[in-house]
Design a protein around this nucleic acid. Sequence first.
DNA 1: ATGGACCTTCCCATCGTGGGAAGGTCAAGG
DNA 2: CCTTGACCTTCCCACGATGGGAAGGTCCAT
Lengths: 131, 131
Amino acid sequence: MNIGAAAKASGVSAKMIRYYESIGLIGQAHRTEAGYRTYGQDDLRTLGFIRHSRELGFSLAEVTRLLALWRDDDRASADVKKLAMAHIEEIDRKIAHMAAMRDTLVKLADCCHGDGHPDCSILDALSQSAG
Amino acid sequence: MNIGAAAKASGVSAKMIRYYESIGLIGQAHRTEAGYRTYGQDDLRTLGFIRHSRELGFSLAEVTRLLALWRDDDRASADVKKLAMAHIEEIDRKIAHMAAMRDTLVKLADCCHGDGHPDCSILDALSQSAG
DNA sequence: ATGGACCTTCCCATCGTGGGAAGGTCAAGG
DNA sequence: CCTTGACCTTCCCACGATGGGAAGGTCCAT
């Protein structure tokens, strides 16, 4: 299977497959004599794993660790869970940050008439030295 | 006031002040004969405005529009509000996305024993073809 | 043999920020 | 007057993950 077919089958773009190979996230693909990369079922499974991990927001660095654990038959599930929990905490931090921004924005927008006049509580707040 | 002092006073790093100038977000600073940028109170107000806008998550493209509205005495507050509301919606989308990831992760982590054994529902889920 | 669909590598762009090198300027103190 | 150190200048590189596209090679079907 060439890279295009592997991309279609795995949901990972050909561009990304090459990139993952270039940074060592996945091993070097087998090549035909002409230099074409070829992929088998195992490779598809790995690419799928990566895609799922990415969809859950894991960074490529974290995916590297997840892949290593995945391939390690002697892993402790505690290590996987630890990684996942840390990621959840990171997401929580981001959500909290965005929720705080959202709160402030909503409050400001509520105070803004939103009409044809120039007076605007949003701009007022943004130009506050203290704000 | 040199750029370092302006950075300290405004909370925007010197690096970023130069960058904002380079992309035209702010005007070109006055220069001393030696080529040093100098800043006055007006500049500080602008930098503060930018910083506050960034802290609320506005992109530099959005900040550009906010600055234009801020400087336009004939603006309609409705335009500002529209920009803010669109930004809130964008934040909502991101929060929803992250909350969904979080949900999935928590469910997976709950099913993972997190002990010394290799069996791990998280890895199992990541390696599912169906996702 | 030709065309089209594929593949290769290589470079560039995004977005906002930081790091750092190489060199110029300025002010204070010896 | 000279040195020292803190500042300033421009320029390039890096991140993270992805896409776009150019220039050129390969493969297969007509």
